[in-house]
């Protein structure tokens, strides 16, 4: 049954959403104060996440590469730099500062009852549709898998 296969991801999402909500990463004022260098909080959250995950991922990739049975079938991702990677990042940065939210937190904000975030999420869907037609029409590169 498909639903049973997918259900764990609901709980993975719940856990991630709750951690970032409690970190303040879903708050407009926290994100604004990060960009204005008034608060270290979210630099600490992102930096702390990388500081913990980087050595652990390095260890996992090394063990998987050495044929460790625990990590059998685990595929290490390979992100490609496409002509869209950096311009897209710049456009995203603009939207991130305007709305004080990135894609995940926008969804959390709706759950928190901040109903204006419905406008943000509607915009994200519109932006995706716009990109799809723009890509078909003008961009000739193979898109990188969206992480």
């Amino acid at each position: 049954m498909k639903t049973g296969r997918h259900l764990p991801y609901l709980f993975w999402g719940l856990a991630f959403g709750f951690i970032i909500a409690r970190a303040g990463a879903v708050r407009f004022d926290f994100i604004r104060d990060m960009f204005l260098m008034r608060s270290f909080q979210l630099y600490g959250v992102i930096g702390g996440a990388i500081a913990v995950a980087l050595p652990l991922f390095w260890w996992v990739s090394r063990r998987a590469g050495a044929g460790d049975a625990r990590f059998k079938g685990l595929r290490w991702p390979h992100r490609r730099l496409t002509p869209g990677t950096l311009p897209g990042a710049a456009i995203f940065g603009l939207g991130w500062a305007l709305t004080g939210t990135c894609p995940g937190p926008a969804v959390v904000q709706i759950g928190e009852g901040h109903w204006v975030a419905l406008a943000t999420v509607a915009g994200i869907f519109l932006g995706n549709l716009a990109y799809e037609s723009a890509h078909r029409r003008w961009f000739h590169w193979r898109p990188d898998s969206c992480a």
Partner: peptide, 17 residues
């Protein structure tokens, strides 16, 4: 928020993350 959302959707899709 809506305009920012469009930029987020377009940019993240273009950038792949």
């Amino acid at each position: 928020l809506g305009l920012g959302g469009v930029l987020i959707g377009f940019g993240t899709r273009m950038s792949g993350g």
